[in-house]
Nucleic acid binder design. Structure first.
Lengths: 146, 146
DNA sequence: TTCCTTGCAAACGATTTGCATTGGA
DNA sequence: TCCAATGCAAATCGTTTGCAAGGAA
């Protein structure tokens, strides 16, 4: 996945939403494209080196999430991490470290993914629930905390 | 699942952990036994009617979670909800409403659960990750927000 | 008596917002 | 030009903690 192709799609989607794809927002995109999992505002600030104020990062993340180009992930200690929406990055799941809170992406074999999807629909129907997506979180300890 | 049988197990486990099973903590248990999903400190305060200070609730929840009788669930807006640990309530998954943040419990058919479990181990090994558990979240809109 | 627990109020930390300024189409 | 976006500081809100009082073993 190249940053430029993702950039095109995001620029277009943000345009449709009536918001600008500013340099600050492009920096957020490039940081997330380079990441192997969701990132918090604080992590992005560090990763981006250049001093972007947290308030701007939070605003960019909120705008991009409500335009559907980013997806939030709620972790421990009230920290929200964002990643590219699945239509940009592909469907995947997460390995969540119960010690440090870090999150890594993983993909499931198609066979199980299909089974899972089917099951989610069934189960949602029974719960009078409109299923829009699903997320499998594998909880444990990451390589660093092991 | 009766409150009294769960009470016994919790009392015993808390005893092993060297903490008391006070009336406040018993109230938390009864509220969670009566719930069909995880509850936040604020929700428990409302549900319990009697005015238990939030700080006490937070402390009870923290103590009970670190003793392994409660499990935390991190939701939107930095809200942490707790539920009985799986050894007390049975293994299950969640329907999470993306509008109001409410969480309902669901159970998967044994067949898929088995497949899922096996897969989680495989995938964790590949990621040099020690898998301790897994959680499937079905995201969508609940009956009320539909 | 000894240590755990509780209440209240103050402190924290992640996130949000008001407001004046800047910047892009 | 004009409105969205940004920076800074102040405000929110869920959660945590210090400290003195209460309670069980």
């Amino acid at each position: 996945m190249t940053t430029s192709s993702v950039d095109q799609q995001i620029r277009s989607r943000l345009g449709d939403a009536g918001v600008r794809y500013t340099t600050g927002r492009q920096r957020v995109t490039s940081a997330l494209v380079a990441s192997d999992g969701p990132r918090s505002a604080a992590e992005l600030q560090t990763q981006l080196g250049s001093a972007i104020p947290l308030s701007s990062l939070y605003r960019s993340l909120a705008v991009m999430a409500s335009a559907g180009v980013l997806a939030p992930h709620h972790g421990s200690q009230g920290v929200t991490r964002y990643e590219l929406a699945e239509w940009l990055s592909g469907h995947h799941h997460h390995l969540v470290c119960i010690d440090c809170g870090s999150v890594d992406d993983i993909e499931l074999p198609d066979a199980l993914e299909a089974t899972l999807h089917e099951l989610v629909d069934t189960v949602a129907d029974e719960g009078h629930f409109v299923a829009l997506g699903h997320a499998l979180e594998v909880e444990g300890r990451c390589k660093a905390c092991k």
